[in-house]
Amino acid sequence: MKKTTRNPQDTIYIYRIATLLALNLLTATAGGLGLLYMRQQISATAERVRATQLAIADTDRRLQYVNVQIAEATSPDALKRRAAELALNLNVPANTQVVHLAGLPQLPGKVSAIASATAEPIFVTFELALLKGGVTSR
């Protein structure tokens, strides 16, 4: 049987086409996968953004809730109820309990010195626990 020989030019041409097809296929595959990856990332980012938004909204909501709770706990009515529950026996000062002085009292020098030495601001913190049930001080 007579063996046919392929023209080298044809072989090169076929290889070129095959290479181009392979590159084309590779590009399409990579592009498709890239697109898929990109979409996944967009989706994941969007989910994260939404989750953050929801977390912020939830925090804001809880903050508002706590604000209302604090306002309720510190309303005059609630404080009076707490005072009654704790049997603090608080009364509105009578007018006779307030003494109005015409000027600053003239204290002895020693007393004045002690007064000025201790005349620092005193910070008193009422914890919410006091208003809500427990008795805590610090």
């Binding site: 307030v98 015409a102 000027g103 600053l104």
Partner: peptide, 21 residues
Amino acid sequence: IQYMAMEPPKPSGSGMIAENR
């Protein structure tokens, strides 16, 4: 008056001290 720590309107008055007797 007590809540607002209002001073009595006296010309010579320079301050008010609340004392819980």
